[in-house]
Simulated scan of single mutants.
Amino acid sequence: MIDTRRAGVGDAAEVLRLRSVMLDAMRPGADDPQTWIGPGVAVVRRLLDAENDALAAFVVDKPDGPGLAACVVGTVDQRLPGPRDPSGLRGYVLNVATDPAYRRRGYSRACMTALLDWYTRRGITAIDLRASAEGEPLYASLGFVRNQEPGMRLVIPAR
């Protein structure tokens, strides 16, 4: 059995380190993590505060030393209710990452299962994520399916 736990404020830097691993796997060499990890730690600490119920991160500690082997981060978004979603609550999985040295051990699955349990306890029935080709088999095995909704995004340059 793999022990997962909910991440706390002390895990912020490691959660961001693993986020950089995930982002680099999706777009190798596109970003320098040193430009955003340092400033981001304070943001992630605030988000991981135990009283924040709009975000949760579940982690697996490295079995052979300090740090995290894997993490999953998910948010809850309040939208307007609709016929298929009467509460309007949606889950979004925004970060799934395993340190390369600890892959293929079931750590991401264990973290995802903990996050899905958290969503279920909150009554959330719709959960979205974006899957890399490498991650898609895991998500499919957990019941995720590709949707047909077209997506668009506008990026407004910072001033």
Rank of each mutant, 00 (worst) to 15 (best):
I2A: 04
T4V: 13
R5L: 00
A7Q: 07
G8N: 14
V9D: 11
V9P: 12
V9Q: 15
A13M: 09
V15R: 11
L16T: 03
R17A: 04
L23A: 11
R27K: 11
A30N: 00
D32V: 02
P33K: 04
I37S: 00
I37L: 03
V41H: 01
V41G: 01
A42G: 08
R45A: 03
R46Y: 02
R46I: 03
D49W: 02
A50T: 11
E51G: 12
E51S: 14
A56H: 03
A56F: 04
A57V: 09
F58R: 15
V59M: 02
V59K: 07
K62D: 03
D64G: 04
G65I: 09
G67A: 09
G67T: 08
A69N: 08
C71E: 11
C71T: 13
C71D: 04
C71Y: 05
C71G: 09
V72A: 14
V73A: 05
V73R: 00
G74E: 02
D77N: 07
D77Y: 02
Q78G: 01
P81R: 13
P83L: 10
R84S: 13
D85I: 00
D85H: 05
S87L: 00
G88C: 07
L89N: 04
L89M: 09
G91N: 04
G91W: 04
Y92D: 01
N95K: 08
A97P: 10
T98S: 11
T98E: 13
T98Q: 09
D99T: 09
D99S: 14
P100A: 14
P100R: 14
A101C: 00
A101W: 08
Y102E: 12
R103C: 06
R104L: 08
R105C: 13
Y107Q: 04
S108E: 13
S108A: 15
R109C: 06
R109L: 12
C111N: 12
M112D: 09
T113L: 10
T113N: 10
L115Q: 10
L115R: 09
L115V: 12
L116P: 00
L116A: 01
D117G: 12
D117V: 11
Y119W: 08
T120M: 11
T120K: 15
R121K: 12
R122Q: 10
I124E: 08
I127Q: 06
D128Q: 13
D128I: 09
L129D: 08
L129N: 05
R130M: 06
A131D: 06
A131M: 04
S132E: 13
A133H: 11
G135K: 11
P137Y: 11
Y139T: 10
A140G: 02
S141K: 14
L142Q: 06
G143F: 15
R146D: 01
Q148N: 15
E149P: 00
P150I: 05
P150H: 14
G151S: 08
M152Y: 15
R153Q: 12
I156K: 15
I156A: 10
A158K: 14
R159P: 03
R159W: 03
